[in-house]
């Protein structure tokens, strides 16, 4: 058996190592597949569905689907662009994403993805959730109205930090992140140096005292 897998993404031949997902192989090959919940250092969550690609005619998420010999992957197609826009739209209206007032503006993966997909304003009606903000921790504040339920903090805290500070509670549209305490974040073992504090793609887990320090235009997402 060969130790290399060959398949195509939009007709371009891509090589993958056994065990790699489509996403990993695409990243190695310099082909970009849009994504939101995916983080290269964490277990793939597969919840945002933005990296949905068509594999041999069937929809699969690139972050969870292992690369296989000869598979034909469609990624950059008008149909998928439309579905991805719809998904990002959904994430926008589900939360309160008021970019112009948000300290993560310019450093937010959701915002960057909206720009990338050409979304100027969501076409769906806003839900305006009203979840309490938790600013009890001395170094971190939680703003769950901006959470996209990507699961990065959950996995980072469990698998990297070994703490389990976060988990999901509730279900359906009421599903949300909760902390490992009956009270607040300050009552958990969370530290600002935790991996869980570094991986939030949006403005949900924020380090205090860092907002607006970097001028717009020179921040991470603009540099990309």
């Amino acid at each position: 058996m060969s130790d290399q897998i060959t398949f195509t993404i939009d007709g371009v031949e891509v090589k993958a190592k056994p065990g790699q997902t489509i996403m990993q192989a695409a990243d190695d090959a310099g082909i970009y597949i849009p994504r939101l919940c995916y983080h290269p250092e964490l277990t793939a969550h597969g919840s945002c569905r933005v990296c949905t690609v068509i594999v041999n005619g069937k929809p699969q998420t690139a972050c969870t689907q292992p690369a296989a010999e000869g598979m034909i992957v469609e990624n950059d197609t008008p149909e998928l662009l439309e579905h991805r826009r719809n998904l990002v739209d959904m994430l926008f209206v589900e939360g309160n994403h008021l970019c112009m007032f948000c300290e993560r503006s310019g450093n937010c993966e959701l915002q960057a993805m909206a720009y990338r997909l050409g979304i100027l304003a969501p076409k769906y009606p806003y839900f305006y959730p009203d979840k309490p903000v938790d600013s009890t921790h001395k170094d971190i504040f939680l703003e769950l109205n901006r959470c996209i339920l990507c699961g990065r903090c959950v996995n980072a805290s469990k698998d990297v930090d070994g703490k389990g500070v976060f988990d999901f509670v509730g279900r359906s549209i009421d599903k949300k992140i909760a902390v490992n305490s009956d009270k607040n974040l300050k009552d958990t073992t969370m530290a600002v140096t935790d991996k869980a504090a570094q991986v939030c793609p949006v403005g949900s887990i924020n380090k205090k005292g860092t907002a607006f320090k970097i001028p717009y235009g020179s921040d991470i997402e603009h540099k990309k």
């Binding site: 597969g46 919840s47 945002c48 569905r49 933005v50 719809n86 998904l87 959904m90 994430l91 209206v93 589900e94 769906y124 009606p125 839900f127 996209i148 339920l149 999901f168 509730g170 279900r171 359906s172 549209i173 009421d174 599903k175």
Partner: peptide
């Protein structure tokens, strides 16, 4: 379906409400 969605993925959680 809105009630019974587990809420894991975006389209089922949000899309059905829409």
């Amino acid at each position: 379906f809105v009630e019974e969605s587990c809420g894991y993925c975006t389209p089922c959680r949000v899309g059905n409400v829409l």
